[in-house]
Design a protein around this nucleic acid. Structure first.
Lengths: 248, 248
DNA sequence: CGCAATTTTGACGTAGTTCAACACGTGTGG
DNA sequence: CCACACGTGTTGAACTACGTCAAAATTGCG
């Protein structure tokens, strides 16, 4: 199944835990495709560059730049940002292992935001021109591309809904924490413990809150024994209570 | 180009101004597809039902229902809603002529919200099973489907960004008005005059404001000569000023 | 260690909510 | 035809959650 598990040390990175290909949103178009010809297995080589590392603060792309690739996070975290006038950074979202980056640029053929590595990270990189060329030739691949896009459409919608149901700051934060938990837990063990790779400043920015407000809410949650935080480590003590707050 | 212009009176509706197919987001998969065979032109008949009317308050589908079709609005307006516990209606968005409905249900194969006609409206209806079957057989159609999905991905992202940059209620309303103007104007004449098919209650709900707040903001805009409203008719007097408020 | 960046806490101001009253149009039934 | 209810929209007054400003505490890093 996972054809790209072998070259872990080839990248030269230290101890990165790469996500399994089975759990990656890019998977539909990364699997070897079955065709009549025998050249099948090397098809993905035409457009896929596996596990490209990004160092901290590296820009995968910047807003306005013409589209060349779409990405899937293999390890680490990326943030998506946009500069408003005048030069305030607005955080549009975060991307964790298994999630896509840049797919919304397929239509305008131009990236509409920045994608920046938070800490050392890595991505699989899909060259769009080559992918489209291949998919023209291989119907099964094109079908997989449709599958990928429909899944992504659903994910985007879910994300939209979670934010538009904007209520109190508390419920926003509660929803965000549960969302993080879900996206960060390896599906085997949905642990209640999670490490914040993101700064609280970035989280506050993303949620449209002031950093002071976010801090106060964390403190309040701590006091009420809903969470327990030490430095970047967070343990969710009362998921059900947070759930209730999230859909208040 | 537009193959479906002839049956205007066939629907039996009074004076509906249907949007031109050229401006519809469904267009990529509604055009006749060129293939080698001579049966080409009737391909869309396999999955496309043109201009199906909906009366006021008609549900196109409800949340939880299994996916059968995706839709494009031909005339009128639809609202997308979801019921939270306990039974409060949350408005997730509006769909105007030329816009898609239900495409985000392609992946889970289940509609995740309700789509309700506001006033008498009409849609083109695409049967998903038949579409996918056809697209398997006709690569060009599948390519068009990819095109449709990538465009939609972009639109969803833009929508998401406009909401996440959530600032003051004033700027929200300013942005909403300009967004309406853009979506409602026939592209020939981007008029500053628009008719609110939607109730202010629904708008307030969508924007996450109280109806009182929305009313006050409209009154303020009126007083400041930014807009002029009489009943459901709204004239935007100072688009630039609103633009500035929108990206404050 | 020591400086800078990040996070937390406090005091105060304001935008938006809440509650309540009223105004208008429309449909319904007596 | 009027009386009444009901949905929709507007306005006022009091309340509160969040933002703002300022300063201290904690963490991270060379």
């Amino acid at each position: 199944m996972t054809q790209c598990k072998l070259d872990m040390e080839a990248t030269g990175e230290k101890n990165h835990k790469y996500i399994a290909c089975e759990r990656c949103a890019m998977q539909p178009i990364c699997l070897p495709v079955k065709t009549q010809q025998s050249t099948t297995l090397s098809l993905t080589d035409q457009y896929l560059a596996k596990r490209t590392p990004s160092q901290k603060d590296h820009y995968l792309f910047t807003q306005g730049q013409p589209l060349t690739d779409i990405f899937a996070v293999c390890s680490g975290t990326y943030k998506l940002t946009k500069l408003s006038k005048f030069n305030e950074e607005k955080v549009l979202g975060f991307r964790f292992p298994g999630e896509l980056i840049g797919e919304d640029a397929l239509h305008p053929k131009t990236y509409t935001h920045n994608a920046i590595a938070i800490g050392d990270s890595s991505v699989c990189r899909v060259n769009v021109d080559n992918l489209l060329a291949c998919s023209q030739a291989v119907p099964d691949l094109q079908l997989s591309l449709v599958e990928l896009l429909t899944r992504q459409s659903f994910i985007s919608q879910a994300q939209f809904e979670s934010l538009i149901a904007k209520k109190s700051a508390e419920s926003l934060v509660a929803a965000f924490l549960l969302n993080l938990k879900q996206r960060l837990s390896s599906n085997e063990q949905p642990s209640n413990e999670l490490t914040l790779s993101i700064s609280k400043d970035n989280i506050a920015n993303f949620l449209g809150l002031r950093r002071e407000t976010l801090s106060r809410i964390f403190s309040k949650f701590q006091k009420e024994q809903l969470i327990q935080q030490s430095k970047k480590q967070i343990i969710i003590l009362a998921p059900e209570t947070l759930e209730n707050m999230a859909n208040s």
